[in-house]
Design a binder for these strands. Structure first.
Lengths: 191, 191
DNA sequence: CGTCTATTTGAATGTACTCAAAAGCGGTGG
DNA sequence: CCACCGCTTTTGAGTACATTCAAATAGACG
């Protein structure tokens, strides 16, 4: 049940068995059916979720209804709108299951309790966000400095399992191009 | 000397006078002349710097020498390559002073000492990075979903003091357009 | 005042978008 | 088992936003 999540948090700091037990006792399982939402824009995000199984995406809609995918999240990643979660402000994000998914969640209450009982988790969460920030810096660079074709190739190399699980429509949005144009990039690669 | 930085860290948690004294005793002043570097690509980032006065930019160069500005940083902000700092890995970034700047810096050693002596700083650093992540998410969204003209207007609204201090060349790079095209956007606005 | 750099302007070009239609693909029911 | 439906992906033509390159102009600094 908790094997994967324990392995995940132990990447940053070696917790004792006792500390891990405390951690595990505060996690709640949550199953999400495909196409259902973990969070919708306008709501406050009340979960920080570890993905045991499944695949989700985090996206926003602008005024004209155009979708922008910020993240795909799969097994052994965490997913949340951490800003909304932390400040208890309304989120701009939609977090939607792309497959039936099994999550383990923390709420603001259980997270506080965890940090109180095992203060070293504070560092773990900091390091997790730091990694995430590094990823976002890389994405911003790639979208500013690289062509759509290069971004697509980099994406395939970095996340080879995602394209098999996610529609091209969503990948295009993640890359910041239209589905039609992504299709043309693929056609060009094929020959 | 420490008034601004103490106000800055107190936004997230109310430290005691004692704790702030410990914090201040670990900060080292560093003055940077305009155009000099706090960090260059290939080096390990050994500073987390609070800006008392001045203006810096963080950018990367790609293979062809094209510059991408990730951040402008001014008074009362922190600047660092936090990933390089934390993992002690080589950075891809250049951090350069755009004006003569007065910084207060933490090193990996003094930061560890601070976290050891005042563990509540762990949370403060986490929240600072969280805010930063929120900013980056917003930028990624705007560059994917909005036109260059809109991005420029949003930038002016959000950071009205920056354009007066920074060349258009750099602003263009921050917005992800060429300097020539930014100039055309400005010409269009003017009439 | 002259030099160096930053900004503007213009023309030609390219990358990516829009809209429309066709083709492909997976699931469902007869 | 295959025919049909709905959804995703592909293809194509026309267009728009942004880039490149070159040259002119403006501004900053010694």
């Amino acid at each position: 049940m908790f094997q994967e999540v324990n392995k995940n948090v132990t990447r940053y700091y070696t917790f004792s068995e006792n500390e891990l037990n405390t951690f595990n006792s505060l996690l709640k399982p949550l199953n999400l059916k495909k196409k259902t939402f973990l969070l919708q824009a306008g709501e406050v995000c009340n979960v920080e979720a570890f993905i045991k199984k499944g695949c989700l995406m985090t996206y926003l809609l602008n005024e004209e209804g155009k979708e922008t995918v910020l993240y795909f999240s799969i097994e052994n990643w965490w997913v949340s709108d951490i800003c909304s979660f932390n400040d208890q402000t309304k989120s701009d994000f939609y977090i939607q299951a792309l497959e039936d998914s099994e999550l383990l969640i923390l709420t603001p209450q259980t997270k506080e309790e965890l940090l109180f009982k095992v203060p070293n988790f504070e560092r773990t969460f900091r390091l997790m966000i730091q990694k995430n920030l590094g990823v976002m810096q890389g994405r911003l660079h790639s979208i500013i400095a690289k062509s759509a074709e290069t971004r697509y190739n980099d994406f395939l190399k970095r996340y080879p399992s995602i394209p098999q699980r996610v529609s091209q429509h969503h990948i295009a949005s993640y890359l910041g191009v239209t589905p039609e144009f992504l299709s043309k990039i693929r056609a060009k690669k094929a020959k």
